[in-house]
Design a binder for these strands. Structure first.
Length: 178
DNA sequence: CCCTGATTCGC
DNA sequence: GCGAATCAGG
């Protein structure tokens, strides 16, 4: 993917709006966050908020990369997201409809600082959706999960627990509470 | 560990 | 110009 005018414009917009390099990379697609940062610097719009005084730091030279000349992507990065739609699909797990009524109370349990928006989800953040997707305060759990596992331990339990067991657990909880 | 931006330098 | 590798830090 090359830096077309449109992509550069979007990059500028998102960067000045305060998005992180990885977020922008994900939105653009086809580039890594390194590419975004590199481009940002080349465009001369680096210091966006705070850049005190970098001073001078000894930079180490990279190890020789003697390999293919034209193949510019030895290990292609994850497809990332081709767009918000693709990610949205992936993050709408089937169990939602099944246990929706019980999901509501959990909303209050997730610290705001740990909540994730659709832009901050990664391979190892919990993708449990919380709230009404059409509302303003819809977000994802965002707590850390094991690589390859869509949810944090807490939501894995809920998502994969048989309905009967779930009911029993609830009884136990309410009994303990009272 | 996760992440962030900054920098260097082979291509 | 591009961006992976690396660094430095939160």
């Amino acid at each position: 993917m090359s830096w077309t005018n449109e992509r550069v414009e979007l990059l500028k917009k998102l960067w000045t709006e305060g998005h992180s390099a990885s977020q922008i990379a994900g939105e653009l697609g086809g580039v890594t966050r390194n590419a975004v940062i590199g481009k940002v610097h080349r465009l001369g719009l680096s210091g966006r908020a705070k850049t005190p005084a970098p001073a001078s730091k000894p930079r180490r030279s990279r190890t020789t990369t003697a390999s293919t000349s034209s193949s510019s992507r030895p290990s292609a990065p994850q497809p990332q997201t081709q767009g918000a739609t693709a990610l949205k699909m992936e993050t709408a797990p089937a169990p939602v409809a099944q246990i929706k009524p019980e999901a509501e109370p959990i909303a209050e349990l997730v610290p705001i600082s740990e909540r994730a928006s659709i832009l901050t989800l990664t391979e190892r953040t919990c993708k449990w959706p919380i709230g009404d997707p059409s509302s303003d305060d819809f977000y994802f759990c965002g707590r850390s999960s094991d690589a390859g596992v869509p949810y944090c331990a807490h939501h894995c339990k809920i998502a994969y627990q048989p309905v009967s067991d779930r009911r029993r657990d609830r009884k136990a909880v309410t009994a303990r509470a009272s």
